[in-house]
Design a protein around this nucleic acid. Structure first.
Length: 274
DNA sequence: CACGAGACCTGTTCGC
DNA sequence: TGCGAACAGGTCTCGT
């Protein structure tokens, strides 16, 4: 489920305690799991030992990563395809996809739900070097037209896979990439070095406004995995194969680009070959 | 460097 | 109804 807006929505809920107590200031008493491979570094037992007694000082986000700033460590959590986080009263019967639980000092558990078990947890004393592998967060105010243009200029590859490459730009996934390209009238297979200055500026603005709209609508809920968001009702192209383009009425097409299902309007986003 | 294939793992939906 | 194929919001590694 999670791209930048969904992760941001989860963070805000945890931070402010929208439907449960707020997370900040609570202490992790213990960690239990039925899927120890959630913990990629260090392993589960080591992480458990290090996490016990740690108080959660702050929550932040970079791209799709959630950062739990503890007293001694930073816990990096990635939800991948099907992860979600929920704060539930301890003792409540587990739900179907619950796997890892952080038992907190307020008689609640932070539950890492993850149907496909792709999610990851890492513990670092300093996340700086780890985050350097990622590009700038897509909503970073310092990322302006000039900086974006300069980054694009370093590559010659198809624009859609480039936008989804987290070392290029952190936060976009399949949904928000398709939507952003539609808004800019760019065919997803367009080579990045074919984009003009104006087009790349428009693209950056489309990316930011799409992500912001996603956040405003609490993310997108699709299928059975994620609940609570509303943005799926405002898609222009994503998962709208065969339905009329909201702008020109042409049926939306689905192709495969970079091994990902890709939705676009063949009329509004013409293929550029020259 | 750019790109495709395959892997990771499990669930739902589609087509016959 | 049943069963296999296709597909799913992500990322990594390997080979060309």
């Amino acid at each position: 489920m999670p791209e930048l807006p969904e992760v941001e929505t989860i963070i805000r809920r945890l931070r402010k305690g929208m439907h449960a107590p707020a997370l900040i200031g609570l202490t992790i008493l213990d960690v239990t799991t039925d899927w120890p491979r959630h913990f990629i570094d260090p392993d589960y037992q080591t992480a458990r030992t290090r996490l016990r007694g740690q108080t959660i000082r702050m929550l932040s986000r970079h791209g799709k990563y959630l950062l739990f700033h503890l007293e001694k460590w930073t816990m990096l959590l990635h939800l991948r395809m099907s992860g979600d986080l929920a704060m539930v009263p301890s003792g409540q019967p587990p739900e179907r996809f619950d796997h890892t639980r952080f038992h907190l000092s307020n008689k609640h558990d932070l539950v890492f739900q993850d149907a496909r078990k792709f999610g990851t947890v890492e513990l670092l004393s300093d996340p700086t070097s780890r985050l350097k592998k990622l590009g700038p967060d897509a909503l970073d105010p310092d990322l302006d037209d000039l900086a974006f243009r300069e980054r694009i200029g370093r590559h010659k590859r198809m624009i859609k896979p480039l936008l989804m490459d987290q070392s290029f730009l952190a936060g976009l996934g399949n949904i928000y990439t398709d939507e952003s390209l539609f808004l800019t009238g760019i065919h997803p297979r367009t080579r990045s070095d074919f984009l003009g200055e104006e087009q790349s500026g428009n693209l950056l603005r489309a990316i930011k406004s799409t992500l912001e709209e996603g956040i405003k609508r609490n993310g997108a809920s699709i299928d059975w995995v994620y609940r609570g968001g509303d943005f799926q009702n405002h898609f222009h192209v994503y998962q709208r194969t065969g339905e009329p383009c909201t702008s020109c009425g042409t049926p939306i097409e689905r192709i495969v680009v970079g091994q990902r299902g890709t939705h676009y309007c063949p009329s509004c986003q013409p293929e550029v070959t020259a």
